[in-house]
């Protein structure tokens, strides 16, 4: 338990020190962007990784976070911090609604994934069509740097801001991993019927997970807005962010607290390196993502962290003799 917190603090310390060591705006820009992806993926990881409910539409939460904050600031002149709080609440509400509609209907696996994708697409089309959301032109936030406006002229400040929220999500995830809610969530992922028999309210657990997940990912959407000061429907509700979210979590190690951050930095680090190496081949980084995903799914289903754990225990006597050859329990007819 303490080891979990220790590794979180080490990772956070390294990232927090980065702006002191590197002055390059290109690098800091990269770090901010990847931290936003990390936060998005942390939201996904709680629901998809820990809870096993694979969402393909986390854009719904990311976009809601971005749009709620943008609309409040642009249309009503609401303070950026208040707008952020409202955006987080908005993400939670959208999460709860999507969860209520799909989990109550008993949707699981690919059906749940498709429904979440559909919700995100509906929101994207609505945001693209309605005047209130800026339509196809999107929404532009007025440049006005200052702490109270959640806008910073220095990139380093934004690194720390994003890092603060990533840290918060890390600690929340770690806390959940050691809690009753976490145990219930994992039980639901592993075997819903058995979980029910042990008194787990499966629907309530899933709803809680998707609500928190929505809130975390909405925060990421809001940070995106504050950093780039512009969103439109294809950015905020685009399929790209849904894919980024699940890709980072799966490549890093799904269900693990540090999975999303490791995955996001590895993937985007690799993407940048390929772009540098391959020069101007458009889309080469995406091809690399695809290849990495195939490799992970095929050879390291536990992601990078899962692979590291496996290699660490290789050669050492395993904690117990593997009894994989156990005959399958006699499946007698249902009497």
């Amino acid at each position: 338990m303490t080891r979990g917190y220790l590794s979180i603090i080490v990772v956070l310390a390294i990232l927090a020190a980065l702006p002191f060591l590197v002055a390059s705006n290109v690098v800091l820009n990269f770090v901010v962007f990847v931290l936003i992806i990390t936060l998005t993926a942390q939201g996904w990881n709680l629901l998809g990784g820990v809870g096993g409910q694979n969402s393909f539409g986390h854009a719904a939460f990311f976009g809601t976070g971005a749009y709620v904050s943008a609309m409040l600031q642009v249309h009503y002149g609401v303070n950026a911090w208040v707008a952020l709080a409202a955006a987080i609440a908005g993400g939670a509400v959208v999460g709860w609604i999507i969860g209520f509609l799909s989990f109550r209907a008993g949707l699981k696996g690919s059906y749940f994934a498709l429904v979440t994708l559909a919700f995100a697409e509906v929101l994207r089309i609505l945001a693209n069509a309605m005047e209130f959301t800026g339509g196809a032109a999107g929404l532009l936030l007025k440049l006005d740097t200052g702490f109270w406006n959640l806008q910073f002229s220095s990139r380093a400040a934004f690194v720390w801001l994003a890092l603060f929220f990533v840290a918060l999500a890390l600690f929340i995830s770690q806390w959940i991993a050691n809690s009753r809610f976490g145990a219930h969530l994992v039980a639901v992922r592993e075997n819903e019927e058995a979980a029910k028999a042990l008194g787990v309210d499966v629907l309530a657990v899933k709803l809680r997970a998707i609500t928190i997940s929505g809130a975390i990912t909405a925060t990421a959407g809001c940070l995106y807005l504050q950093y780039f000061l512009y969103i439109d429907a294809n950015i905020a509700y685009g399929v790209w962010i849904s894919i980024e979210a699940l890709l980072a979590a799966m490549v890093g190690g799904r269900g693990l607290v540090l999975g999303p951050i490791i995955g996001a930095f590895s993937l985007h680090g690799l993407g940048e390196v390929t772009k540098l190496a391959a020069g101007r081949v458009p889309g080469i980084d995406l091809a690399v993502y695809g290849a990495v995903l195939i490799l992970v799914v095929g050879f390291a289903p536990g992601g990078i962290l899962g692979l590291i754990n496996k290699l660490r225990f290789r050669g050492r006597p395993r904690p117990e003799p593997e009894k994989a050859a156990t005959p399958a329990p006699k499946t007698e007819e249902a009497a």
């Binding site: 028999a197 008194g199 329990p329």
Partner: peptide, 20 residues
């Protein structure tokens, strides 16, 4: 209990029982 055993396969024995 279930006739066809339903362990939480990804968890260890202690974690399995702890869910209960």
């Amino acid at each position: 209990t279930f006739q066809i055993v339903q362990p939480f396969a990804g968890l260890n024995v202690r974690e399995n029982i702890a869910v209960g």
